[in-house]
Design a protein around this nucleic acid. Structure first.
Length: 270
DNA sequence: ACAGTAACCTGTTTGC
DNA sequence: TGCAAACAGGTTACTG
């Protein structure tokens, strides 16, 4: 579910409900996530007031005066804003309770993470090696070109590496490469600067469009208010293997790169 | 440094 | 129909 647009949709969806609000309780029902949830999480958070809600790559950062709560949604995580009492459903692992609402973390596969840190956030081991934000200055074709010289991995695998650029998961990697007309299997180190400039623009464009659409709902993604995203209606290649290319009607091909399904048009992408 | 793979989990879909 | 295998939006850790 959650690539950058879904995480940003989540951020926007929870922001107005929890900014400047005080945490009055924390309930951890299942601490076994990607990394164990600290047994002293409740003690650390209780009484704290959320003073900022930001995002770094696919990490949500909920800041208070004394530290930051890092939330990663993994493959199947979600945050919901609970306004009326709702019964606990399967995989509702954590509640962060405010006076009027509950922020409820649900994650069937438990690949996500909820971590409290009181160190300067930019030095956190999970964040400090991350590449640039694709929607901010500092990310461009020159960066991709410079970083890719001598790299032999497929360009799709390259742009999904969070050290190269953050937030590009499998859906949007497929879509960006189609839009840029680049074959996903092409060696990263053998792509020209001009083509990387086009690719950087396409990544930016695809991600920002998806944010506007509220993300992509494939099976069950909903924003914190329970509404689905709408970007799936604009998907050009992801999930369309064997269907006609929306540009030239050639049937779309599917291969596996780094064990991830990869869909492309063999005529439109070179 | 780089490339490839296994691992962490559960739910749903696919194939025999 | 039933069961097992394959697969799913991510990332780290390990191997060679």
């Amino acid at each position: 579910m959650p690539e950058l647009p879904e995480v940003e949709t989540t951020r926007l969806g929870i922001k107005n409900f929890i900014l400047q609000k005080q945490i009055i309780d924390v309930i951890v029902r299942q601490p076994k996530l990607r990394w164990p949830v600290s047994s002293s999480l409740a003690q650390a958070l209780m009484g704290q007031t959320i003073c900022d809600i930001s995002r770094r790559g696919k990490y949500l950062l909920l800041k208070t005066l004394s530290g930051t709560l890092l939330v990663h949604l993994g493959m199947s995580g979600s945050l919901r804003v609970i306004t009326n009492a709702e019964p606990i459903k399967p995989h509702d692992h954590i509640d962060i309770v405010f006076s009027d609402i509950i922020l409820r973390y649900n994650d069937p596969r438990r690949f996500g993470a909820v971590l409290w840190t009181e160190s300067p956030i930019e030095e956190h081991v999970l964040l400090k090696e991350l590449g640039p934000e694709p929607l901010l200055d500092g990310f461009n074709g020159q960066w991709l070109y410079d970083l890719s010289r001598s790299r032999k991995i497929p360009v799709k695998t390259f742009i999904m590496d969070s050290h190269v650029v953050v937030g590009v998961g499998n859906i949007y990697a497929n879509e960006s490469l189609f839009m840029a007309g680049i074959l996903p299997s092409r060696q990263a180190g053998r792509i020209s600067l001009v083509r990387y400039q086009a690719l950087a623009e396409c990544i930016r464009s695809v991600l920002s469009d998806a944010v506007v659409q509220g993300g992509t709902t494939l099976r069950d993604f909903v924003n914190p208010s329970g509404k689905p995203g709408y970007f799936q209606q604009q998907l050009r290649v992801y999930g369309r293997s064997g269907l006609p290319c929306r540009n030239c009607t050639t049937l779309l091909s599917e291969i596996r790169l780094a064990n991830r399904s990869t869909v492309y048009c063999r005529l439109c992408q070179r």
